[in-house]
Design a protein around this nucleic acid. Structure first.
Lengths: 116, 116
DNA sequence: ACTATATTTAGCTATATAACTAAATGGAGC
DNA sequence: GCTCCATTTAGTTATATAGCTAAATATAGT
């Protein structure tokens, strides 16, 4: 008799335990975003961001969808969404999260150039 | 103007994103336990366990209390407790967690020898 | 004093993680 | 076919993490 491990649960926590991925999730909580929009906010390169997004997707936290020339990411489910909303509501003021969101609010995916 | 980072939140997720620490938390959810009891269940050495416990404590997830010759650990607050209970209720059956708990149920801290 | 329980430290190993550059690949639209 | 947006791959670097051993330290009970 052996026992399975709760990998998927732990994998989700691991995914949440990184600053850039946490910021991505909080931004996606506001609205679905394409990769180039996320790149405008985060101080990382395109390849690095792709890796983070893949990890979040594998963990079951986000979804991917083609929209014309763009790939748009969003929170995977209502369940994850309400979980993250609860977390967000407990953050103290003046975290980088609030700053990210004000940037995201005024961003258009047409601004995006190849600053990869 | 700069923005604080939500370190403590991310630190909690990091703490949760490790199998041994996750198992420790789930066991403490059942009842407070001393170090030697945890050592009976986990396949790690005393020094390693101490490090995990310190990390969980720093993250604000558990508390420490002297009880005679033992140091007893417990979940830090009702808030953390209900959070973990929610997580636990969503685990599929037959994870190692259920196994840990049946061992913990019948353990006494007097059994503990210096298997450090 | 001595014992039991646990933590801490130093030193070590192995693996995982996060980032980069740069080039190649894929898919959609024009 | 070419361009745009994004992913993937290969190769590299640096740091973090998890584990070990073994010795030292701390604290409480007997």
């Amino acid at each position: 008799m052996y026992y399975f491990i709760m990998y998927s649960t732990i994998q989700k926590f691991k995914a949440l335990g990184d600053e850039n991925r946490f910021r991505i999730l909080m931004m996606l909580l506001q609205k679905p975003l394409c990769v180039c929009e996320l790149l405008e906010v985060l101080d990382i390169k395109g390849g690095t961001l792709s890796a983070h997004l893949k990890l979040l997707k594998t963990a079951g936290l986000i979804n991917q969808k083609k929209e014309g020339r763009w790939i748009v990411y969003s929170i995977s489910s209502e369940k994850v969404k309400s979980f993250l909303t609860g977390i967000e509501s407990e953050l103290e003021n003046k975290t980088i999260i609030q700053n990210d969101k004000t940037i995201i609010k005024d961003i258009s995916r047409d601004i995006c150039s190849s600053s990869n």
